[in-house]
Amino acid sequence: MMKPAVAVHEPLRLTEETLSLLTWRIPDLVAYQHNHDEWWFAPLDDNLPIVRLNRTGLDMLQAMNGHTTVGALVKKYGATICGPDGQPGQWHLEHWALPTYSLCYYGTEPPGGHRHKAKWDLLLQQVREGWSGNEGFEGESHLEDFHQHELTDSGKDDGHFDLIETTVSHLFREPNDALNGLTYGRLLMKQLRKLGWFTPKPRVIVEVGGGLGYLARELGKELLPFEKQTIRYISLDITQPFLTLQVTRAKAGGWGGIGTRANGEWLPFKNNSVDLVIDNENMADMTPVKLIREELLTGAGTTPQHQEALDWIRRVRLPIGQNVPENVIFNLGPFRFVAELWRVLKPGGLRSRSCFGGVG
């Protein structure tokens, strides 16, 4: 199997500013001692090259501990051969921090903070998604697994949506001039009233994927206490730490604070049991499937999930056309979600959905 082409980057210029930066070696490294004076290193990415070092090069890599500047390393190792390929230390310092190698990080502050290694997470994410010059399909279960199993320590603060999964929605947590001095949640509640969605008043409101809970809190603050007494506000999320925050902030907004951990593609509610569903910025995180040309042309899926996607394409009469690409990513999750909404909403039930767009 051929490796994808790696994006080409010019060597880093060791300017005065760069020389003053501190250095950190990346923690996620594969290391192999080839012989008594040769070590091989590479990040956890198959598309990045192996760097071969001798004892001097190993010492330089180990010196990247957050206390040593680039300039100090140039002074000590710059003219010394650091590996069996014959490059001096300065060559390595001009290349290791580039996306092509991704062995280290130069900066004024340590790459830490939220989730302990957030900036390393970002660094590795760039390595895996963009720096190698390719953005591949990560798998049909990747998003669900990520939100269900990999965010176990993200409920202690708001940093995940500020650093890792950034959107503009968090800008609306506070009153904003663009929203007439209101928070997004308060303005949304005003609009729901204006549209008549609270006449009659809903008995069951479900918020799907409520992030950090600010929307629930602000929606509740716009209502008087007696208006919320007969309303059950249910927060539903697949990520337990976020669900905990949602329930806490819903209570701060005067709601009863009910939370249920579930996938929005399979809502755990009876038919015709919900009056209002609120959904912000979730559909892009739902299940995608990667269909091949033959499946699209024949209508026969290679897996049950692919067949489900093809059935939806046929049911909603999406045109296939003649020039079908070799692969097509079909966002199956939103179709499941909308079908579930149709099932659980009461006759005349309503849904509020919005998407602010991503910032990346």
Rank of each mutant, 00 (worst) to 15 (best):
I164F: 00
I164W: 06
E165N: 13
E165F: 09
E165C: 13
E165W: 09
T166N: 10
T166E: 13
T166I: 14
T167Y: 13
T167L: 04
V168K: 14
V168S: 15
V168P: 09
V168I: 15
V168Q: 14
V168C: 15
S169L: 13
S169K: 02
S169W: 04
S169D: 10
H170T: 12
H170N: 12
L171V: 12
L171K: 10
R173E: 08
R173H: 12
R173Q: 07
E174W: 13
E174F: 14
P175R: 00
P175M: 09
N176F: 09
D177C: 07
D177M: 12
D177P: 03
A178N: 12
A178V: 12
L179A: 06
N180D: 14
N180G: 09
G181N: 07
L182H: 00
L182N: 07
T183D: 07
T183E: 04
T183V: 00
Y184D: 05
Y184A: 02
G185M: 00
G185H: 04
G185F: 01
G185P: 02
G185C: 04
R186Y: 01
L187M: 06
L187Y: 01
L188K: 02
M189R: 01
M189G: 08
M189H: 02
K190C: 11
K190M: 12
K190P: 06
K190R: 15
K190I: 06
Q191H: 14
Q191C: 10
Q191A: 09
Q191W: 10
L192R: 01
L192A: 03
L192G: 05
R193A: 11
K194S: 15
K194G: 15
G196I: 10
W197K: 04
W197A: 01
F198M: 09
F198Y: 10
F198S: 03
F198G: 02
F198A: 02
T199Y: 14
P200S: 04
P200D: 07
K201E: 08
K201D: 07
K201V: 12
P202N: 06
P202M: 03
P202L: 00
R203I: 06
R203C: 05
V204S: 02
V204H: 07
